Structures are given as structure tokens and as C-alpha cells.
Simulated assay, not measured.
Amino acid sequence: MGVYEEKKETCGTICLKYLLFTFNFLFWMAGGVVMAVGVWTLLEKSDYISLLPSKTYEASAYILILAGAIVMVTGVLGCCATFKEQRRLLRVYFVLLLCIFLLEVLAGVLAYIYYQQLNEELKQSLRDTMIQKYERTNQEHITRAVDKLQQEFKCCGSNSSADWAASEWIRSQAGKGRLVPDSCCKTPTPMCGERDHPSNIYKVEGGCITKLEKFILEHLKIIGAVGIGIACVQVVGMVFTCCLYKSLKVEPY
């Protein structure tokens, strides 16, 4: 009877080992996805980040990159701990899983919080950013971001093209008589911003603020979903780790 119990426990341990190994392989791949989402957010959309009044969106992306990198390292550690059956490595692995879990939940929570306050922040800041910083000295990144925003989303001004009438650059000699920046034009050419007729420039209801808000909200959903989704999967990994750890404690060395 005792021999049967020992064999049964050994088989259970082997099953746990392979389950945990499979989990770690998938976990390692998920870490790459998490890190890729964070890097893509920062590299591809870095211009738009400069137009946001808060660093919460950027912080969420950085947290995902950090969590993704740790996940990939942890996945390798988990495989080693599983097959070497070392309880010390399993403890380290469990602590790392817990830290990553907290990081990804934090990224998801930050994304959700910013999701709630984004509309008001954009309303208060985007127009001021456009009219005060566009084409100003040492604000080239803002100018580039605004031009990209207006061309990519086919819009003009924060709320409407009329916002540009208050622009410091438009009202100065540097504006050369333009009514709107050339990036507002449907076919951008030098000095095309002298004519703000609907046939020449984008007249979008709600202006660029509506377009940018929709874009950021969609990406916040992705960041939040990735962070919380991977965090939930990690709970399974922590359960497997605890089970394997307990089974190793009763086995002879």
C-alpha cells in the first residue's frame, strides 16, 4: 500500500512538472507579447504621447515593457526550477510571478483610471498646447505631433479649425498670413493654409480632440486587457507552483 502511495505521488509530481513547464513556455511567449505591446505604444505613438497632459498613458506602457521583460526571464527560471525540482528556485519563481502579477494589475488599473479622466484632460489641454506651442522654439516635437495628428486623422484644430485664430504662431509674422497650418490641408503644400475653406482644409465635427480621444481610448483598452489578462493567467501558474512545491516537500531527498 505504501509503495502504491509513493508511486501515486511521484506520478502526480511528474504531471505537475509538465503542466508547469507547458505553462512556462506559454508564459514566456506571453511575456514577449506584453513587451511588444509596450514598445509599440511608445515607438509608434510617441508623437501623440507628447500631446497628452498626463504621463499615465506613457507610464502604463513602460510598466508593460518592464513586466514583459521580467516575464521572459521568469519563464526560463520557471523551467529550470521545475525540472531541477529545487524548492529554493521555486520560491524565487513564485515571488517573481507575484511581482509581475502586481505590475500588470497596476498597468491595467492605471489604464482604467486614465480612461475615465481622459476626456476632461484633453478638453483642457489640447487646445492650449496647439495654440501656444505649435511652431515655437524648442517645441519641435509638439509641432511634429500636431502635424501628424491633423494629417493622419484628417482634422484641423482641437475643437475646430477656428481654434487656430488664437495661435501665437498664426498671428505672428512667422505665420506669413496663414489662417491654419499647412497640415490642415487636404493636399498639404507650402502656404496652402492661407485658405480655410472646407474644400481646402479638413472641417471635421468635434475637431482633432474627438479623433485623438477615440484613438487613445482604443489603445488604453488594449493595454488594460493585456495587463489584466496576463495577470489572471499568472494565477494559474502560481497555483501550479504551490502544488509542485508542496509535493516536493514530502518526497525523499
Rank of each mutant, 00 (worst) to 15 (best):
L102F: 10
C155R: 07
S158I: 07
K55I: 06
M29W: 00
Q234W: 00
E140F: 02
G68R: 03
V233W: 07
C80N: 08
L122K: 01
P252A: 10
D147H: 10
I228K: 04
A61C: 09
C242S: 12
E120S: 12
C156F: 00
C79S: 15
S125M: 02
D182C: 11
G68I: 03
K203S: 14
R195N: 15
D182V: 10
F101N: 07
A59W: 00
E213C: 06
A61D: 04
K221C: 04
S125K: 11
F23A: 06
P190M: 05
G207V: 10
E121C: 00
W40M: 11
K214S: 13
V73Y: 05
S199P: 05
I142M: 10
A145P: 07
T143H: 09
K176I: 06
M238L: 09
F21H: 02
S54H: 13
F215G: 12
V37M: 05
V180W: 01
T187V: 14
R91Y: 07
V226I: 10
C243P: 05
K246L: 10
R91P: 00
H197V: 09
I142K: 10
A111F: 00
L217M: 06
Y134C: 08
P188C: 11
C242T: 13
R144G: 07
C11H: 05
S199W: 15
S160G: 09
I14R: 06
S183K: 08
K214F: 02
K17S: 14
Q150C: 06
C155Y: 01
K203F: 13
Q150R: 07
F94L: 13
K17R: 14
A165K: 15
Q86V: 02
C185V: 08
M1P: 04
C242K: 01
S50Q: 12
G78E: 15
